[in-house]
Design a protein around this nucleic acid. Structure first.
Lengths: 139, 139
DNA sequence: GATTCGAGTTCCTTGAGGGAACCGTATCAG
DNA sequence: CTGATACGGTTCCCTCAAGGAACTCGAATC
């Protein structure tokens, strides 16, 4: 499908992958710890990790003989950006007790949320602020 | 799970929902047209639409007698922001022929993609630029 | 030398998704 | 007025993928 959403979903579309990426990003990066944290079946976790490694979202490193850990690649780290926007939505609409996790911005030290802006004018750039046009990769 | 990602995935986690939202956002907002566009089974589409309406992401409107169309609510429109960041990733990493769709920003008229920034200092705020802290809603 | 741990693999069962056909109400063509 | 067509779903069956529990295999630990 000529759609970047569909192509992204091909990589992280099924429901466990975003949670796996979150765990690895948060430092839970070994098989058993991810399995325990998420409650995912070991079989499916094996498949997902292999899939994500093949797509170069994660890499698998041997940290001791026959012991492996997973780490985000550059591609994977940029996928975490998608998760950050999910978090913003979840915090706003489905977190009655307040946000479970806060972000502190390295540059300014403030605790805050992410915001979507236009790189040209710096103004807010959300779904309400744009029109869609056909691009070069459209069929 | 005390995690805004998991709670967001509970709403749009299975693979068809983001594509349904994209279609509705792009103006493909009636049952048969969505079904045809996505190639989803009618049974599953019925279930998903009902689910998304119950979660107040979509609303169902009768535009003629016994004819219905779907529209994004405010909650739903903000979910499209998540899709915009997915698009950026897909454009960057898995679109060899260039982006299939472009965004024109209303405010400045430029064609561009979305950027994640910090509302306090205005600087870039991606996964690499933050630390995680426990928030009030953590268990 | 036995036990435990980490990282999977195997097998069985169950549930969700796909496909195709069917249905009820409106509108439209003749 | 009647048959055809469109729209918005339901229903039924079948397959395939996810879940759960047990097993494996090598390395380290006691």
């Amino acid at each position: 499908m000529a759609c970047s959403i569909a192509r992204t979903l091909d990589v992280i579309g099924e429901p466990w992958s975003p949670l796996i990426l979150r765990d690895v990003y948060a430092g839970i990066n070994r098989f058993d710890r991810i399995q325990e944290d998420l409650g995912i079946s070991r079989k499916v976790l094996t498949e997902r990790l292999k899939w994500l490694v093949e797509r170069e979202v994660l890499e698998r490193r041997e940290y001791a003989t026959n012991r492996y850990e997973y780490a985000l690649t550059e591609r994977g780290t940029e996928l975490v950006d998608v998760l950050m926007v999910m978090v913003r939505w979840g915090d706003r609409w489905v977190s009655p007790d307040g946000p479970p996790v806060l972000y502190r911005h390295h540059a300014c030290g403030q605790v805050s949320h992410v915001e979507l802006t236009c790189p040209h004018c710096g103004g807010p750039m959300t779904a309400k602020d744009i029109d869609l046009l056909a691009g070069p990769g459209s069929s």
